[in-house]
Write a protein that binds this DNA or RNA. Sequence first.
DNA 1: ACGCTCGCTTGATCTGGGTCAAAAACCGGC
DNA 2: GCCGGTTTTTGACCCAGATCAAGCGAGCGT
Lengths: 250, 250
Amino acid sequence: MPKTATRLRVVEVDRLKTACSTCSLQELCLPAGLNEAELKTVDQLIDRRRPVKRGEYLFRAGSSLNSLYAIRSGFMKSSVLHDDGREQVAGFHMMGDLMGMDAIGTSQHLCDAVALEDSEACEIPLKDLEALSRNIPSLQQHFHRIMSREIARDYGVMLLLGSMRAEERLAAFLLNLSQRFEARGYSPLEFNLRMTREEIGSYLGLKLETVSRTLSGFQAQGLIAVQNKHLRILKIESLRELVSPQGCRN
Amino acid sequence: MPKTATRLRVVEVDRLKTACSTCSLQELCLPAGLNEAELKTVDQLIDRRRPVKRGEYLFRAGSSLNSLYAIRSGFMKSSVLHDDGREQVAGFHMMGDLMGMDAIGTSQHLCDAVALEDSEACEIPLKDLEALSRNIPSLQQHFHRIMSREIARDYGVMLLLGSMRAEERLAAFLLNLSQRFEARGYSPLEFNLRMTREEIGSYLGLKLETVSRTLSGFQAQGLIAVQNKHLRILKIESLRELVSPQGCRN
DNA sequence: ACGCTCGCTTGATCTGGGTCAAAAACCGGC
DNA sequence: GCCGGTTTTTGACCCAGATCAAGCGAGCGT
């Protein structure tokens, strides 16, 4: 084998092979709570890293499920397509999030996963994950926790879509983003909206004009400063009060 | 020990002890797809059957999670309470459904589970389920499938809440109920609505008046016959078309 | 069988957010 | 640095569904 080929191969493996044990998202991601030895085992689980350019699909609705995907970097949305073409954004996903769990039941993806900026995802073959979690109870537990959290998140979205008004929805959305950025070590008060107003609207059950107007409204009230995709939260407490008015005990 | 005491004890065990291996919901419920021997093992999992009278709680939001619950008979709703008292019904659950999965992540229930009619649930200690599913791959797989299906269902609800109009929501709701009754061996075209118009409304993000009006509308168009809680579907195809208009390919 | 409460229906009116439209700002490509 | 398409903002108007209101019916407890 010529030297250059070997060289390339090494580089390739280096690029594609991913190790949880050296990943900064350890604490946030699937292997959270594992010990050294377990982590080493989980390393063997991660097949390869998959880059997804902005606008590209990580997977598509209807395609068959083989792997779950842990987002390593970037930003994605998942969306369900109605027969008549209407799109419902089901969630926004960032590093450390696990995607594809909706497909385990039917072995077919239910939603599209699209990168909103250049991203990278770790491919986790489901069969291997299941096999491994039989031997590592804490992995099993954590996997269950992650699925459960997704269900809990969904309930929150239902609450939002089913019984909140436009202002409340937007405020809840911004607070949620803020909190997730914070959990990942970024500023909770200043960040970029990676998605368009239309995508925000779809997620929140609003039209893009309403999203735009409501953001402008928040800005006029001095709650936030938006310029395009860049957002700064000025009065986070006021936003919180919008979502849960006053000191109302339930 | 006096004879009567023994007698009582036997009766009690008989009432509380539940066996999957003799349960008619086997195929629908957690143990679906297990063989004889595995089924016998799972029998040991089911701690006890718990009766829940109409209006009573199976569990409440905030209480700590110990067990999942498989509904054996009856009908329940799960609902999330907003701080200010607004209630969002997150789902309706019938026999064979598994409840409580939203709580695994935090070990705290996120929603209330209330019986809409006298019901019975099988208590499944989570720790035991996890332990057992480490030894029985098909149980593990099926458990994952069930959680995944819940996520998929939630995505469907988001689609409904986020991008459908009142008529479409109601039609989708009726079709969903119809299908679930059919899967359980009941008539898909004639059944009782166990929940109030207000609960339907909460689930669908509509007010009870709108639910009532829309049902009346369907009746006027000859799609259904409603009287109170009793419902008969007359033109199921027309209902389907309401949800997915014409032959629109996506 | 009675009364009473709670759930349901239906009508009238109101409004939050949708729709339509147009201009402005932004971005990527050349 | 200019150009063309996309995204965003803002305005004017409209409508689906909310709200308010009033009567009706069914089921339940006594």
